[in-house]
Nucleic acid binder design. Structure first.
Lengths: 121, 121, 121, 121
DNA sequence: GTGGTCTAGACCACC
DNA sequence: GTGGTCTAGACCACC
């Protein structure tokens, strides 16, 4: 009997920022709060916040301007690609979970369709 | 900026057991490890494990036989109902996430369909 | 030879609150005293009081507003259902006791009728 | 907010013995276990057990034979009277509770009738 | 051995 | 301030 998925914190931070960029809460070119501020906001170690941000810089989602701060990329194509990547990961995770629940592929489709059709979801 | 999943531990435990029951790793009528054993296995306090199990007893998913232990219900209908409940919650959570990613309903369906069709997921 | 009622304390607390809600001493939507206050009033541990209240939240009899307090449900149908549930349990317990006292069903009815008719009860 | 009914222990003991006599588990003339034994069985103080028994002796339900022990009365009329007394108290208590739950007298009768009619009670 | 309940005390999240 | 969760440790009932 195992549980504790233990998604690393820096990974969770990345996802939060991803969502904000995809939904436009963080616009292209917009400046992010200072790393130290991010760390305080999330009650997280500065190094953890730094790791999350620097990985996103590597990915090209963020741009780091030395001494100025971190900024959302202005490259719309990169944001679109990010959106597709996050969607894919989300959907794949779900499909995996549903298959683990012994659902066949047609049943999965029907379940998703049912959830969409309902108004209250 | 918020993240902290903060899914209570007892809730996570419930989900692990749910999965084991739904997938048949825990068969109907099968005995669970003793509460204290569950607590040790998950490095969790006995009360926390107890809470998870006793809630599942209330739900009818488990049966508690005083002084004997906890057992998976023998009532197949309850297990089926549990499976549907867990599936619903899983799918609804996904749909919510995808909508948050600004996906329209047809896009959601297409995305799920795409994920299923791919072999490597 | 067994006796020890051993009705758990949290269960007794629930019953007290049930009565207050059913009789209207606690009106729909009314706020309950803080959990810690309830615990002090009943000279009971906070966790015990918390357990009683949170079970009633699960049942839908109470509503918990995080950081604000616990409130009686505004849903009159739930209160009516609660009243019926408590009545049923009370009556069933009695009938069981009377049958244990070797009363036949007609004798039970006659006894209840007699008790009602008397003025001094 | 009050609860703790606090039915005195000696009173609870009396009720247990009453039931045993009424249902015939303790036959007329039958000897009861020694007071010290009763106390041990119920994990109760000897004085408490003694009080329960001596009150029942006063009531004529039990007979104490010095140096021999306590015995159920042989007088059937007393047992019958006891049965009626216990029934009356039980029924009156119920009626009181149901009235507290804002039930009218006809509703009480209907509720009891309903409970009797159901097979599963 | 098993589960069920309770207390004491802590820490967190939301307000 | 409010409720929610968790740990540590105890004691009881049933087996």
């Amino acid at each position: 009997m195992q549980f504790n998925d233990k998604v690393p914190i820096y990974y969770q931070i990345k996802n939060v920022v991803y969502y904000q960029i995809i939904t436009g809460q963080l616009a292209p070119g917009e400046q992010l709060p200072a790393v130290r501020q991010v760390a305080v906001n999330l009650t997280v170690n500065v190094n953890t916040a730094q790791r999350a941000l620097s990985e996103m810089v590597t990915e090209g989602v963020l741009e780091s301007r030395r001494g100025r701060g971190n900024f959302v990329t202005q490259d719309r194509a990169k944001i679109t690609a990010l959106r597709h990547r996050v969607i894919d990961e989300t959907v794949n995770r779900l499909v995996k979970q549903l298959r683990a629940l012994t659902l066949s592929d047609p049943e999965i489709l029907r379940a998703v369709n049912g959830s969409i059709t309902k108004e209250e979801s």
